[in-house]
Design a protein around this nucleic acid. Structure first.
Length: 230
DNA sequence: AACAGACTCAACCGCACCAAT
DNA sequence: GATTGGTGCGGTTGAGTCTGT
């Protein structure tokens, strides 16, 4: 790759010396005008490379190390709400970058949840980088708090899974379909229903009509075992 | 110990958006 | 209105590491 003045930019892994130069630049000039770094410091890196290195690794705000269960829970909920809008998701997970969240999702959750990666899509089919205002608002209402109300759309692999998983916690089943699936029919596969009109912890929405509310939910990852997120 | 395959994650790429000119 | 430079985003790659045989 060529630099702005015909220079060859260096690619690949960063060295300790490169990190030191970059940190010194940010300390003196701040986190702007990344493209000037090459000219000012002589560091043979593109502005984009410098920016990425700082944001994903050198910034003191970046948390390193493995993800906690609370972070996993939050990422799953936010991904369900926002899709692959990694920067938005990362913005709600303190200390984590979009790249970290994206990598973590692709390596851990895709495998665990049985999600197969899409084949390469044409660029024009990619979602807009800019989220809708309503999505930002929704994301802002999701917190790393066990008392928040979580509505998580799911599909069931099969009836046996449904029965087994529901036994993990006490809850209420709700059939909101006015035309099909009588409650008696559905109760064959579910524990007795128990309506709850006050506080509850987590709501799992199996499809447009069927909802399960867990009052004492198991860890989310345990509960998600055997389900496909839709 | 040696090798192969699987996995992880830092980094790159192409594109879109926006402000300045 | 067109162009340019800076920035940000999501998708993808591939080198390094881990794990099983």
């Amino acid at each position: 790759m060529k630099g702005g003045e015909g220079k060859e930019y260096k690619k690949g892994r960063w060295t300790e010396e490169g990190d030191r130069v970059l940190m010194e630049y940010v300390r003196v000039h701040g986190r702007t005008h990344w493209n000037r770094i090459c000219k000012i410091t002589g560091l043979m890196r593109s502005g984009k490379s410098c920016r990425l290195r700082w944001l994903n690794y050198l910034s003191p705000n970046v948390k390193h190390g493995s993800f906690s269960e609370e972070e996993d829970d939050l990422i799953i909920r936010l991904h369900n709400l926002l899709g692959n809008r990694w920067s938005l998701i990362a913005g709600r997970v303190p200390g984590r970058t979009d790249n970290q969240v994206k990598n973590h999702w692709n390596t851990h959750f895709c495998k665990k949840l049985g999600i197969t990666k899409r084949t390469k899509k044409p660029i024009k089919d990619k979602v807009s980088a800019k989220p809708r205002a309503s999505q930002i608002e929704e994301a802002q209402n999701v917190h790393m708090s066990s008392s928040s109300m979580d509505i998580i759309p799911l599909t069931l692999n099969n009836k046996e899974d449904k029965e087994a998983e529901v036994q993990l916690g006490q809850g209420s089943y709700m059939n909101n379909n006015p035309t099909t699936n009588t409650i008696e029919e559905l109760q064959r596969y579910w524990p007795p229903t128990e309506w709850d009109d006050h506080h509850f912890d987590q709501t799992f929405m199996f499809d447009d009509y069927h909802t399960f509310v867990l009052h004492s939910p198991p860890r989310l990852m345990e509960f998600l075992d055997g389900f496909d997120v839709i």
